[in-house]
Amino acid sequence: MGSESRGILQDSGRTRRRLTMTTETQAIDKSGHDHDHGHSPYLQHHFDTMEQQFNSGKLGMWLFLATEILLFGGLFVAYAIYRALHPEIFEYGHHFLDPVMGGTNTAVLILSSFTMAAAVRYAQEGKKTMLVACLVLTLGGACGFLVIKYFEYSHKMVHGVFPGKFYAPDDHILEEELMGAHGHGHEEGDGHHEEGHGHAAGDHEEAAHEEPAAAPMVVSQTPPAAEGEFVIEKSQIAEAGGGPEGLVGIVQQEPKMPKRPEKAHVFFGIYYLMTGLHGLHVVIGMCAIGWVLLKAMKGVFGPEYFTPVDLVGLYWHLVDLIWIFLFPLLYLID
């Protein structure tokens, strides 16, 4: 460590108590402010000045945000590793996420971040009405985010797209996600047969409608084949992906129906964990904003004391920051 970093450690911009050998205990204000910090009712007894208290709170919050970054960091590591080693599951999985919804949510969060920053400004200026309005708007943004998230989740879950071992998608969703915009073409299917399996692709489709496909790790289910014999299959989508004879042929190439990779469920595991933990943070953030809102309505904030607004603001911006990375990483692939 050189003198440079020592400079950083010195925190020159702060007022400190001077310890002397006399019994003089009065705080010595060196910051050159002409007003007295020491008499604010919000100054806790163990601090000497409001500025010291404010800076301590800020550093504390930043350290806490650092822990949050490392907490999410673990998930980003899991993401990076599976993205690097199994890119196919991301290519496959992202088709199930709606970039419009994700993008809307990004905008919503950015806007709420802005209203939060504005709230801090109003708190500093002591403008109570505007502060309250901004906090309410921020809360509204948070709610909006969660509502959209709810629709995204439920849309996946009704189709069996659950994380991990509960992942048992039915084929509707794949069609809907991929064919929705292009109309579907399986009626024109030419009935190619999957090698070694004794039923037509058309039958196969029907079977899929009746019964969700097996999750890759569950011992394969046996769809009722036309001939009444049990055929062991690994998973229908995987089979469909088995080349031109599979579903790809049926839907006539355009758009290409991707095959389901073996570890597809890992993508959804990561997706649910990342967005779920993020969603949890949104909820915690909402509680914190609600608490600050109550205080703001009592009118306790002003130029001398707005630390809670500022710190909750920092937290809320972090929630936004995480989403700024989650959005392209999960929704915008290829």
């Binding site: 925190d11 911009g13 800020k58 550093l59 945000l65 650092a66 970054i69």
Partner: peptide
């Protein structure tokens, strides 16, 4: 802000 806060962020 005080630069130390940025240091905290960057190092995390």
């Amino acid at each position: 802000d005080q630069p130390f806060n940025s240091l905290v962020l960057v190092s995390s």
